[in-house]
Design a protein around this nucleic acid. Structure first.
Length: 479
RNA sequence: GCGGAAGUAACUCAGUUGGUAGAGUCACAGCCUUCCAAGCUGUUGGUCGCGGGUUCGAGUCCCGUCUUCCGCUCCA
């Protein structure tokens, strides 16, 4: 992990945000190579999503009407009161803590908070119902927390006061910081799609089933950031919401699961580094949910979620906006609120996943077949590689450098390529290996006579000779 | 948020009981060099994370703070 972070910085993939001021917790900047690779990644996703008949794109604004987040449930559900145990330092979400109490413990709490009212034998159902009813307000919950014992160390009354965590970034529209002007930075891009559902549908004349895709930044005020780009407060999502007729959701859920896994594999991910994670505890909007997890150096972590979201979001927006979001099916003459299949992938997270997956330190034999040495290489898929090729004169004389510069200029009309004439050729190859450049074209003395160059392939380090005029097509075929 | 570790050149790291800040790599300018990081010469580059304190004197000792990594917790 540290090696990847170090390489990312050294070669200009990722820098820490505001580094000269000591950095800002969990914020990162993409450097010259990072932005190329991130753009490539986003482009690969965009092409796979929208270069088809049934998906349209949008780019919604980050600031949205505050009611959007009431409708989506984020205002109510995106805040989790938490407590810490002062004794053993473990932390709990208060609602989880309450849910996990057994009936006996609930009875104890009720007895202590309402003396005399729950003495003697009490039916279990009554205890459960009364607990749910009476321990419902912030006030009563806080009281209950004071009585409870920590499930981990058993110490009673060791919890801190419950603290509210609102994971949405708050800001103000206009220069006056008035509570009437509060808006939120979107915590997910999906809502920008839902609120535009009818706009897109009518403008594009799409019929169900069809999808809307969007790439954009989202913000969550996470309690703690973590693991390089994995958990950050500002991140980029690539989301597609696919609208279907109710009853067809399961079929398309399976379809998109397959498609999305295929996407990762086609970009060079190894199957053994990916796995499905099924959500057993579903969110309030979901009917089914699977995550694609990648094996990061720190363990398995989610890079994409594929969720069957029912018609929850559109229905909520109908209710909160008072506008109909129903779709009229010409065939069956039915009017209904479509169901939604969501594919939501983290651009930053998958960037990191591809970086980690491609990082390798290989032992290669020395020139004389003796002591081996370490070769650091990023086995990035050519589509993702920030530099598509390097053009190198073997030595800087006899006009080899001029030929190489001309070739570079030609190729730059089509690709991001790199010219390098400094130091020994081997060193230059290795430098390209380290940033994942898939091909190196070398101009040597033979080029001067027959206009051919050598192609050196990154992963195999094998070389072949092709005509200089064929270089462009060589790259086009492979990228 | 808790606990542990770390922070010195772009990178990896030295730095003695407190006494003017070092190496290798990289980069740059040359030379050399006809295919896999290892030749030669020269050069640039450091607020020792930041802020206090102790001291004649702090990279070194003390306090605070920030950031990163690891573990816990959390991740509608």
């Amino acid at each position: 992990m540290e090696k990847v972070v170090s390489l990312a910085k050294r070669r200009g993939f990722v820098f820490q945000s505001s580094e000269i001021y000591g950095g800002l917790n969990g914020c990162w900047d993409y450097g010259p190579l990072g932005v190329e690779m991130l753009n490539n990644l986003k482009q690969a996703w965009w092409r796979s999503m929208t270069f088809r008949d049934d998906v349209e794109g949008v780019d919604a604004s980050i600031l949205m009407h505050p009611k959007v987040w009431e409708a989506s449930g984020h205002v109510a559900n995106f805040t989790d009161p938490m407590v810490d145990c002062k004794q053993c330092k473990s932390r709990y979400r208060v609602d989880v803590l309450m849910d996990e109490l057994n009936t006996k413990k609930k009875k104890d709490v009720l007895r202590e908070m309402f003396p005399g009212q729950f003495d003697g034998q009490q039916p279990d159902e009554k205890i459960v119902a009364e607990f749910a009813a009476r321990i419902a307000t912030d006030e009563t919950v806080a009281q209950a927390v004071r009585i409870l014992a920590c499930p981990n160390c058993g110490t009673k009354g060791s919890f801190t006061e419950a603290r509210q965590f609102n994971l949405m970034f708050k800001t103000f529209v206009g220069p006056v910081e008035d509570s009437n002007n509060v808006v939120f930075l979107r915590p997910e891009t999906a809502q920008g799609i839902f609120v535009n559902f009818l706009n897109v549908q009518s403008a594009s004349r799409q019929k169900l089933p069809f999808g809307i895709a969007q790439i954009g930044k989202a913000f969550r005020n996470e309690i703690n950031t973590k693991n390089f780009l994995f958990r950050t407060r500002e991140f980029e999502q690539m989301e597609m919401q696919y609208f279907v007729k109710p009853g067809e959701e399961d079929r398309f859920f399976e379809y998109w699961r397959e498609e999305r896994m295929k996407w990762f594999l086609e970009l060079g991910m190894k199957p053994e580094n990916l796995q499905w994670h099924k959500h057993e505890k579903l969110a309030h909007y979901a009917k089914a949910a699977f995550d694609i997890e990648f094996k990061f150096p720190f363990g398995w972590g989610e890079v994409e979620g594929i969720h069957s979201r029912t018609n929850f979001d559109l229905s909520q927006h109908e209710q909160f906006s008072g506008k109909s979001l129903k779709y009229f099916d010409e065939q069956s003459k039915e009017k209904f609120v479509p169901y939604v299949i969501e594919t939501s992938v983290g651009a930053s997270r998958s960037f990191m996943a591809f970086l980690c997956a491609s990082y390798d330190e290989e032992m290669v034999a020395g020139a004389d077949g003796e002591a081996g040495e370490v070769r650091t290489v990023l086995h990035l898929h050519p589509k993702l590689a920030p530099m598509k090729a390097a053009i190198l004169p073997l030595v800087n004389r006899d006009g080899m450098d001029d030929l190489a510069r001309n070739l570079t200029k030609d190729l730059q009309k089509y690709f991001r390529v790199f010219y390098d004439d400094s130091g020994a050729i081997g060193r230059r190859y290795r430098r390209q290996d380290e940033i994942g450049t898939p091909y190196c074209f070398t101009v040597d003395s033979q080029t001067l006579t027959d206009q051919t160059v050598t192609v050196r392939e990154r992963d195999s380090m094998k070389q072949e000779r092709i005509a200089m005029s064929a270089v462009r097509d060589y790259l086009l075929e492979r990228i």
